[in-house]
Amino acid sequence: MEEHKFILFLFLSAAVLVAGIFHFLYSTTLNPPSESEGLQNPLKKRGFVLVFMFIVFVVLLFVTVPKSPYFLFSNETPAKVVYVNAQQFAYMMSYKSIDLNKPEIETDVELPLNEPVEFRVTSVDVTHGFGIYNSKAELLIQTQAMPGYVNRLRWKFTEPGKYNILCLEFCGSGHAVMRSSFTVK
């Protein structure tokens, strides 16, 4: 997924830009022209930067907020619903709601390709995470598994293959080995 690379690229470019500006600023302090009086009209420049940043942020908000995961596939009916009960340090998954007294756990969850599916994620003990990784070990989407609440995560898988689930909220000593997987066909 290009998104991951893009974020790193965006950040590194911005960081290099900032470092460049600081280096330039530093270099002007070493041998300034003798007649120099420093920055002219600082107040006006400050106003300009303020307005500029304000506009940038407003534009970013308008672009990014509609892409928030809360609105994903909300108008579609999921082709398949998977119930997920997280617990230290495993996931119980089932196509049916999970009755803790007689859980019917699905060991090989299979999900359809190119159709919306829904995960109903909750936890029976502590707060866990539910992060879905594709076969290239890239994080696609996630939600939290908080006890007492069911979070509904909808997604459409566009590539067949094995997907891994990793816990993305620290849940105790077995946190790093808490995982599961499913197949998209």
């Binding site: 119930y83 009960n85 709601s97 999970i98 009755d99 803790l100 909750t122 007492g148």
Partner: peptide
Amino acid sequence: GLYSFSEEEKLFK
């Protein structure tokens, strides 16, 4: 207090 999961049963069936 634990949570009851009975309301979850048979959903989306």
